[in-house]
Design a protein around this nucleic acid. Sequence first.
RNA 1: UGGGCCGUCGACUAAUGGUAGGUCAAGUGCCUUUGGAGCACUUUGUCUAGGUUCGAAUCCUAGCGGCCCAGCCA
Length: 572
Amino acid sequence: MTTPAGAPEPGASPAPETRSSNFLRDRIAEDLKTSKYNGRVQTRFPPEPNGYLHIGHAKAICIDFGLADEFGGHTNLRFDDTNPEKEDVEYVESIKEDIQWLGFHWDGLFYASDYFGQLYEWAVKLIKEGKAYVDDLTAEEIRKHRGTLTEPGKDSPYRNRSVEENLNLFERMRAGEFPDGSRVLRAKIDMSSPNLNMRDPVMYRILHAEHHRTGNKWPIYPMYDYAHGQSDSLEKVTHSMCSLEFADHQPLYQWFIEQLGIFPSQQIEFDRLSLTYTLMSKRKLRQLVEQGTVRGWDDPRMPTLSGLRRRGYTREAIRNFVTAAGVSRTNGIVELAMLEHFLREDLNKRSPRVMAVLRPLKVVIDNYPEGQAEEMDATNNPEDESAGTRKVPFSRELYIEQDDFREVPPPKYFRLTPGREVRLRYGYFITAKSVVKNDKGEVVEVHCTYDPATRGGNAPDGRKVKSTIHWVSAQHAVDAEVRVYENLFTKENLGDLEEGKDPLDYLNPNSLEIIPHAKLEPSLANAAPGSRYQFERLGYFCADLDSRPGKPVFNRTVALKDTWAKIEKKQS
RNA sequence: UGGGCCGUCGACUAAUGGUAGGUCAAGUGCCUUUGGAGCACUUUGUCUAGGUUCGAAUCCUAGCGGCCCAGCCA
């Protein structure tokens, strides 16, 4: 991975000081005040190991771990691994790594599968009390019996089997006597409840599948709804925070807890994080990985924590963003720009500056002695004096950015243009004198003169220059691959699609641009994978793990704010 | 449509019956050896209609609008 999990990162931005009120914090504070749980705060983060964590999960993590920390409580990491067909150890490992990378530490590490035995015993108890029954209906028939949103359901013909028969059947389900899907165990609640979750929900299904932890021990697996609330209860969770769509399940969890007479955890729901131009469905993200649209779960275009990390995001940027975005019970969508703001804010303070040219245009300084080279002093980070300075080689032939020269400048264009003097950052003032063009009429070389008196970038006569551009000495330049990313999707709100449209219909064909031969200043030749820099005037870049000594590969994490681009856009 | 949840600047979020505030975005200036960063300033909001109250974003009623639920997924 690009950054060792949990490694300290000096110079990081502190958390925002404003810890604004929110209903979760208020609720916990209130419970503490009334000693509802004897002053105890126990939370849990309960992912299903069926995919990689994304930035939406970061919000849940910050809430579950952050709030417990804030109130002196504890947080368990519990994998809700009740569906062996979709789950895998690869995912549990990635989830652990991502949580640690964010800087959180769990107290207990549990799996819902740890409770399979207990859950089974409780099911038997419910059967004995006439509160659960084995149903032989097919999935299709169960669906039909469930009724609709407006019509009540109908009782299954198997609903009133004797306790003995239910016990016998359930034991044989466990013994593996029946094929997948042939029977289920259901809670006997109320087929006419307006809450569909209460219409005799399925507790167990038959599944002859190998589980990543329990192997082939179980041919039956509990449903999430039968496992989740009791898992919380077993862990004595006081504040079980989850997303809004589970609010309707609360009465069911309470029903199980009451029938079983076990510890009453309380559930509190909050809104999920949605981001503009960002897909947050684990199922859809897996599809992108499996169909090869992206290079993997950690593709830098992915909103996964591993993708963001590889892209160059810092944990502080993510955590500060999550804090600033806040939490409520409304269904909103946060602008990506807000995430990028907290990213830039953090990166600005901690990233060493460096010069790199993405799209090179050769500049020849005609009056600079051929064969001469000198070392210029450059500041590593104007935001951090302790970062010191470095030497950057300068010579007669340089590369500048193609964007930094225009033969015919548009209005308000301050950069290099025929007859105009500009400053080469930490170098000299130069004036463009003539250009060389190729067959197609494109400028391929700009000839300039320099003023030797302006070494370092200051004119002794005090004359000013309108702009400063970056450069790399041609003979000293390091060749690098640079990967420039755009949003993976072109649609602002992927949660609000037209009828019949799929998020994948809005893939951005330009989400990845590979620049094979960017020119970097020589100090970057052996940049360590994961190291972050600001390429002056361009943006923040992070060395990818595909880098090799002498042949670095950089990801553009995020561009710098670009005032000129804004002006140019307004002009067009 | 039955049930549940929710409507505050363009976005997100505070104000817990008593001055509608913050962050992002947008805009305008200042400054600048990054058109970066920073600084200052500005614009824009309580879904609607009634009611309670000295006073309502907040409480009540009715509308309107949005999200979630009919998996042997979580």
